[in-house]
């Protein structure tokens, strides 16, 4: 069985995001970029399944600018076998990503597609669900445990108020949550091998998908600065203030 793992290069979780002066987006020049942490968890899970002998190949795919292949290299260093870069300079929205991934899935025929539940740059949390709908495959989002067998996958999901366990027939879509696993530090031999693993470069047109944005981005801004607080002397005064602020 093959596993397909979509990955995304995002602004590093430790880097400070700054808005471009013209408010057209986040300034990515000279900022450290890394593989999306949820995607790293997806790759780790797929590689563990391969190491457990349940999976024969792990294929990582990314969609974006040429530099996005850094995310593929990170996936290859963890243990993915090969990568596919669908190169485009457009801002690609979740729906276009899902359409491209659906085409890749049709070509690769994976048993499972494991995606991060969301990317930490725009926090959309849409791609996995859209991909499930487009392919007509069952989906289990926010996985904290994945148990794969030849015909089905049992997924424990983190839901409000507890855990829910679903059994999906394959092929299926799984999106990963933080507590699924703790990704390894890639070993030095694997980092070196990753440089030699194949990466295939494609364009959206190769899949016949139009990635033109359907949404219009009006502007991106910093969160408004918080105004200074005030001190109250009594509980009664607090209630008054809350009432006059319309909070009670």
């Amino acid at each position: 069985m093959k596993i397909l793992v979509p990955v995304k290069l995002v602004i590093d979780s430790n880097a400070k995001a700054r808005v471009k002066p013209d408010q057209s987006g986040v300034d990515l020049a000279n900022v450290k970029l890394s593989i999306n942490p949820f995607d790293e968890i997806s790759v780790e899970e797929a590689v563990r399944l391969k190491e457990a002998g349940k999976v024969s190949e792990v294929v990582a795919v990314t969609i974006g600018v040429a530099k996005a292949q850094d995310a593929l290299r990170a996936a290859l260093a963890i243990g993915a076998d090969r990568g596919i870069l669908i190169q485009t300079d457009e801002m690609v929205e979740p729906l276009a990503i899902a359409k491209l991934l659906a085409k890749v899935a049709e070509a690769e025929q994976p048993g499972v597609v494991i995606l991060g539940k969301q990317a930490i740059d725009d926090d959309s949390n849409q791609t996995g669900q859209m991909l499930g709908a487009l392919l007509g495959w069952p989906q289990a989002t926010f996985a904290s445990k994945v148990d794969l067998s030849a015909e089905a996958v049992e997924v424990t999901r983190e839901v409000d108020g507890g855990h829910q366990t679903l059994k999906l027939t394959l092929p299926a879509i799984v999106t990963t949550d933080l507590r699924l696993n703790e990704p390894r530090y890639p070993s030095l031999p694997n980092i070196m091998k990753a440089k030699k693993k194949p990466i295939e470069t494609k364009a959206p047109a190769d899949y016949g998908v139009d990635v033109t944005p359907r949404l219009k981005l009006l502007k991106v801004g910093e969160p408004p600065a918080r105004s200074a607080g005030i001190k109250v002397k009594t509980a009664g005064e607090l209630v008054e203030k809350l009432k006059s602020a319309g909070a009670l």
């Binding site: 290299r73 260093a77 530090y185 890639p186 030095l188 980092i191 070196m192 990753a194 440089k195």
Partner: peptide, 8 residues
Amino acid sequence: LAASVLEE
């Protein structure tokens, strides 16, 4: 390659 090794 050197940069990847150093990063990890």
